[in-house]
Design a protein around this nucleic acid. Sequence first.
DNA 1: ACCTGAACACCGTTCAAGT
DNA 2: ACCTGAACACCGTTCAAGT
Lengths: 249, 249
Amino acid sequence: MLETTEERAGMPAVSAEKGRTAGNAVETRRRRAGRPSAAVLDKAGITTAALELISRKGYDGLTMAALAKLLDVAPSALYNHVAAKRDVLLLVEDHLTSLVDVSAFGSAPWEDAVRTWAWSYRNVFAEHTPLIPVIAVLPVTDAPQTLAMYETVSKGFLDAGFPEERIVSAIVALESFIFGSAYDVTAPGDIFEPGSMADANPYFTAAVRSSAGQPGSTGEERGKPADTAFSLGLEALITGLGSLRNQAG
Amino acid sequence: MLETTEERAGMPAVSAEKGRTAGNAVETRRRRAGRPSAAVLDKAGITTAALELISRKGYDGLTMAALAKLLDVAPSALYNHVAAKRDVLLLVEDHLTSLVDVSAFGSAPWEDAVRTWAWSYRNVFAEHTPLIPVIAVLPVTDAPQTLAMYETVSKGFLDAGFPEERIVSAIVALESFIFGSAYDVTAPGDIFEPGSMADANPYFTAAVRSSAGQPGSTGEERGKPADTAFSLGLEALITGLGSLRNQAG
DNA sequence: ACCTGAACACCGTTCAAGT
DNA sequence: ACCTGAACACCGTTCAAGT
């Protein structure tokens, strides 16, 4: 999996001085200053610790100080492995992208493969919306797993008869929709309730009232609003983009 | 338009003690402690000052301290008018939404109206992507201009024969695509250059190479990549969602 | 090369005191 | 009600010193 030499270790690295794993304090003997005989930190360990912190305390809890504490080092030690906090977010982003399901490309028909990929992609990042501003501006060179995902998706599009010169635009369009939709998942359910402003906005108010209880994409009685909107937009995109394919696929 | 009583003043409020407008220092006579005879701050002034700061220094420059300095007050004075920095972002967001062009609804055909609205919406927020996480979770009750936009768009959809119970989902789907696409505009042009990873990712690399110089939506020789992708996705959504309309429109 | 520890230049926010 | 001024509890990051 595009593993680099400095990222081979598991996480969290065992601290020789303490005989324990990070985040699970057992002893308190201090590590003295100076370079340790074996490095305590590596990128894989930092990534796993960041993920652990995010799942426990959310993105507000992901501070360099908290990360350092979980890894049992001084905050400044992190800067031997990352240039800035943004690099930590980047490591996390690339790891999460490897969780996106691209397996249907190559087995299922194009429409099904895009559907599986898009839902999986949205669901992964719905839990990690603070990363979206990072991804959107992220050069693919800095994110090997993200690049690997694009490679699989590109091959799937090409094999399905999609014109090569339109593949990147199509992926970008789908991704834009996916990222925007990931935010919707986190929105409160009553986000569109006009409340006291209902009288001044009758058309929108009526639309909101009548949209309640619409069936979800999976067929249940009332789907979550975010899922209904995602399904609606995704099917429109699949149909519209699919019309660009030629007969080769 | 939906002006509230405490927001009627222009901006920046004139400081009686200094005889100048905020952000344009002339005198330095100190305002003494205690409640001033006329309020120095109001929401409209805070909004305009925030916008000024953003245009001059970007969102990193928008701090409560910098905002207070531009308005010539102590930082703590802001908290008499907003509960937190988030409220400042909300004020800015609602103002920007009022700049989105919804004028084509009611005059142009539905497809053209959606197109005009979507491009305008994307262009406004492409310059203000840090607001996107705020909007996505924002109850409409707290943003009267945003609600007004939804009202106009909803009426446009209904008048065009769009089924009422699908309007909110359709707007959400379009908005999701618009917000995601706004990020693309800010991305560096070479974001997809595989660089040294090209060999390991041949399909994606070929797609990136062949996508360069594709025509933009406005017909010029080579459009900006973000515009090409936006056009592609938007037209797919317009076609797909448009098929839901009945003959009434 | 890769740690510690101290320090720097900020943040957003709170709150008593003043008029 | 609506300011000032001081203070609090943080931030991310830098850098000399140590091995």
